[in-house]
Amino acid sequence: MKQNKYDDLGFFEKYSQMPRSTGGLNAAGEWPAFRALLPELRGKRVLDLGCGYGWHCRYAREQQARSVVGVDLSEKMLERARENTNDSAIEYRRLAIEDIDFAAGEFDLAISSLALHYVERFDNVCRKVHHGLVPGGAFILSVEHPVFTALAAQDWHYGPQGERLHWPVDDYQNEGARLTSFLDHDVVKYHRTVAAYVNALLDSGFSLTKLSEPQPTPEMLAKYAEMRDETRRPIFLLIAAVKN
């Protein structure tokens, strides 16, 4: 069984209280930038890797996608997704991202939001996604930025009064597992350099069309004061690629 913290009751309850869990896509700081990377969705067959509550799945159907398959390892996440979905064109499957095995050309678009930094072999996932896409199909993904994942502490350097002085970056070139604390629980994330993400996609047969390191929009900053420090260092890396 791959790492599945979201079926831990205590972790799931804390995650359920986060703004992006209660407010959906509009409460996700990176959503405007992610949405801008998406191609026209009308008539597309969409795969969502790490679909969670199904927010992106439902958005795709709102934009007239033909069908959506949402994959997630957490039964609790999928249960919540099914509760909030009344659409026969959306199918949720309990499956680890690492274990996907779809037919060639089964999808026109694959997306993944903040899930692939939990996967040890990103290169293997890229090859499987490439296989499952039609020629010209797009792969749009977001991960925690390597500047954010380099150190397991994932925290600021503080001054004597507790002020946030700067964000330390060390061990950036040392790729691999990081045991981090997220929502007061130990979670394993996998740190990769920006080059490692890019080269895994290129080596799998993708061409890159866009990179994005978004900041919160003024509207998000006005609504969520805690996002103010997200303008000081990147927290998300977004990549858009297309199958050659």
Rank of each mutant, 00 (worst) to 15 (best):
E13F: 05
P234M: 08
Q154K: 13
E219V: 13
A110S: 14
L47M: 06
M220P: 00
V71Q: 08
I111Q: 04
L49P: 00
N26V: 09
D72C: 03
H166W: 14
D87N: 09
M77R: 02
S204G: 08
V143F: 10
A241G: 05
S204H: 04
R45L: 05
K210Y: 11
G176Q: 09
L9W: 07
G176F: 09
K243W: 05
P160H: 11
Y197A: 07
H131G: 11
E213K: 07
Y118E: 07
L25E: 07
E230V: 03
V198M: 12
Q215H: 10
G70R: 00
V187I: 15
R82M: 13
G137I: 01
P19C: 07
H117V: 01
R233F: 12
P168H: 06
L238K: 04
S16T: 11
L201I: 04
E75Y: 07
P168I: 03
L41R: 01
C51G: 04
M77S: 14
Y158K: 10
C126I: 03
W55Y: 14
R35P: 00
E98F: 01
M220F: 10
E79S: 15
D48W: 02
Q63T: 00
L183I: 05
G137V: 00
V71K: 03
V194Q: 14
H185G: 08
E13T: 11
F34Y: 06
V194W: 07
W55S: 12
A81F: 00
H131C: 13
L237T: 00
R42D: 11
K243P: 09
S16Q: 13
K189R: 15
A200W: 01
R232Y: 10
V143L: 12
D171W: 03
H130D: 07
S16F: 07
G54F: 01
V169T: 08
M18Y: 02
P39M: 04
T217W: 02
V147E: 11
Q154I: 06
T193W: 09
N86E: 10
T85L: 11
A196C: 13
E30D: 13
S21Y: 06
I239Y: 03
K189C: 14
S67A: 15
V194P: 05
H166D: 13
Q63S: 02
L114N: 12
K128G: 06
A27R: 03
K76P: 10
A225R: 09
V68C: 12
C57Y: 00
G70I: 01
H145E: 09
A60K: 00
L109M: 03
A65K: 00
G159D: 14
I97V: 15
L201D: 01
I90A: 03
F182M: 12
F11L: 11
F34L: 13
H131R: 15
V71E: 03
E91A: 09
T217E: 03
N4C: 14
E163L: 07
D170L: 10
S181G: 10
F182E: 15
A60E: 00
A36W: 04
A27W: 01
G137R: 00
A177F: 04
L183A: 10
Y6T: 06
